[in-house]
Simulated assay, not measured.
Amino acid sequence: VGQYILSPARVLTPEEELTVPVLPDWYIIPKEVKRICEHAKVTTDTVQPMRNFLLRGPAGTGKTEGAKAVASGLHLPYRCLTCSANTEVFDLLGQILPDVDGKRTALERQYPSFQDIMLDPASAYEKLTGTYDENITEDQVYKQLIDTIFDEMHEYYASKTSQQHFRYVDTPLVEAIRNGYLIEIQEPTVIANPGVLVGLNSLMDRCNSVFLPNGETVQRHPDMVIVVTTNNDYAGCKPLNQSVISRMSV
């Protein structure tokens, strides 16, 4: 665990540290996992560091646990993306979605919690209205809270135009590309269109960049590792495109 850190000077944020897998005590590290970590570490300063790995085998042989163990050995945050028959390139690289504000949750002010209202209705009422009334009841404060939030939301939407806005949504893969995480791509052989993964070829090549649907070009972080895990010859599985297999380091 943590014996194959790719960039010794790199410091993960507390949030990233929480997503570095912790191996259970019962887990016996397979030789394949150790070999992948060794290859990734020893080739780090070479012209073409090994960062793309393919694990194949029957269900239950520990491919996903192996991917997590690799992340643990490299001390990288772990991300996962599971493929299905309908997976398309935009499912891997993100998509442009309408920016629907109907589910707005970020309010401008800090409001008293229900516990605040129960413990001290007068102070909660003062926080909402600026007026301290020691005779105010919990029910009156609850009603004032609802009215205040309603007024804020009404003002917010009244100031917005009716023009539709769109935003780009990152996938776990793009998050891993940007920040240098390990991403496990599960079961790509079930994708109905075997050419979908070919859309990632530029990411796996030496140029190490990919074009996103929003027009942005993302450079692959030097620590970013791709582990593809797939079954062998199961019903519904299709052969991986040879151009994808040729880009796997091991």
Rank of each mutant, 00 (worst) to 15 (best):
A176K: 05
S123D: 10
L173R: 03
I177Q: 06
L128F: 09
Q164E: 12
N135M: 09
M118G: 10
T129C: 02
E152V: 08
P121T: 10
H165A: 12
F114H: 13
D139A: 15
D116N: 15
E126K: 14
E187F: 04
T161N: 12
S113F: 06
D151T: 11
A158D: 14
E175D: 12
Q144R: 13
Y168Q: 04
T148L: 03
I149P: 03
R104S: 08
A124P: 10
E152F: 07
E155G: 14
D116P: 07
T171D: 00
E184A: 06
Y132S: 05
I177W: 02
T189Q: 09
A124Q: 01
H165Q: 15
D101M: 13
T171N: 05
E175H: 04
F150P: 01
I149V: 15
E187P: 08
D120Y: 06
Q164D: 11
V190G: 00
N193D: 15
I117E: 06
T131F: 10
E134L: 08
E134I: 11
L107E: 00
Y132H: 13
D147F: 03
E126V: 02
K143G: 00
E152L: 07
I136M: 05
Y157E: 12
S159D: 13
I185F: 07
I185G: 05
M153T: 10
I183C: 09
I146L: 12
Y125S: 04
N179F: 03
H154S: 11
G180A: 02
I191Q: 01
H165T: 15
S113N: 10
E126M: 14
T129F: 07
I146W: 00
L182H: 04
H154E: 13
V196F: 04
